[in-house]
Simulated scan of single mutants.
Amino acid sequence: MAAGMRQGGEEARLLVRPEAPGVELLRASFRTQRFDRHFHEEYALGVVERGALRFRYLGRTMTAAAGQVNLVVPGEPHDGHAALPEGWTYRMFYLAPQVVDAACAELAPRRAAPHFAAGVLDDPTLAARVRQAHLLWELPGASSLARQTALLGAVTWWIARHAERPAVLPRLGNERGAAARTRALLQERYAEDLSLDVLAGHAGLSPYHLVRVFKACYGLAPHAYLVQVRLARARTLLTGPDRLADIAAAVGFADQSHFTRLFKRRHGLTPGACRNFLQNRETGKG
């Protein structure tokens, strides 16, 4: 579900996904917008893409420039306006406290809700993680697994490195059996939109720990592994007569354009070009 506005050279788009309660997204470009002093009931976490945002927060005036992360915690009043004549463009997540608490529990099960003393963070890795997660949540064809994994990775990085009481990631143990069960499930049910919670329940691990264990064992996060399985199955189907749109749906991609984009990134050819190659090879015409 999305809502947007465009007026006087400014634009904003708000997005929520019914299957992910507690997560809202905002992508906006502002020049003259001035936010009155207000507070959120959620955590706000975002990245400035262009220009700069200035706001009064925690008794100080702060400026978030392009490439920096800006944030506020629930209940803390703040305002906001452009710090440069060209305004600012940013991507924001608004995360219900239970979403952040769940990520915090991955790091320390009995830890109190995290608090952050800074409103601006100069952390290129976190900025890149937040931006990538936001792009995935916007992308219509992205899987639930990819979205959840990216957001959880960004939030746990944020907590572990910037909360007032930094947390230590739990050590990886010998959980190869859990990783193997997850891989088998991905290979068996690759056409489904499996969530990270489903995989974690099957593996008997917490979501974030499963991602770390799986990547340590197989070199890819579960969502990236799932994409490779789908592409491999699709390549096999390209030798047959099915339409490309039907192949995309059969292996679990949301639409043909998403399938085509990922296939080309993996193979360097579009599915149509690969089909011609494979079928010509079988008939001896290549």
Score class of each variant (00 low, 15 high):
G8L: 13
E11F: 15
A12Q: 10
R17A: 10
P18A: 06
A20N: 07
P21Q: 11
F30I: 10
R34L: 14
F39W: 04
F39N: 04
H40S: 00
E42A: 15
V47W: 04
G51L: 08
F55Y: 09
Y57H: 11
Y57D: 04
Y57T: 02
M62H: 12
N70M: 13
L71R: 10
P74L: 10
G75C: 08
P77S: 12
H81E: 15
A83L: 01
T89L: 02
R91E: 09
R91S: 06
F93D: 01
Y94F: 13
Y94V: 01
L95G: 03
A96N: 06
P97Y: 00
Q98H: 14
Q98V: 00
E106A: 08
R111W: 08
P114I: 00
H115W: 14
F116D: 02
G119D: 06
V120L: 10
V120M: 08
L121D: 02
D122C: 12
D123V: 00
L126F: 03
R131Y: 02
L136F: 03
L139H: 13
P140E: 07
L145H: 00
Q148W: 04
A150G: 03
L152Y: 05
W157G: 04
R161P: 02
E164K: 07
R165D: 08
L172E: 06
L172F: 01
E175K: 07
R181A: 08
T182E: 05
A191V: 05
D193Y: 02
A200V: 05
A203F: 03
A203P: 04
L205C: 14
L205R: 07
V211R: 09
R212K: 15
K215P: 01
C217G: 08
G219D: 10
L220P: 04
H223W: 11
Q228A: 13
Q228N: 11
V229Y: 08
L231P: 10
R233E: 14
R233Q: 15
T236I: 11
L238Q: 05
G240V: 09
P241H: 15
P241F: 11
D242Y: 01
D242L: 14
L244F: 01
A250T: 08
V251C: 14
A254F: 10
S257T: 11
H258E: 15
F263Y: 14
F263L: 13
F263Q: 00
R265T: 01
R266P: 00
T270N: 09
G272V: 07
A273W: 12
R275Y: 01
N280C: 08
K285T: 13
G286S: 13
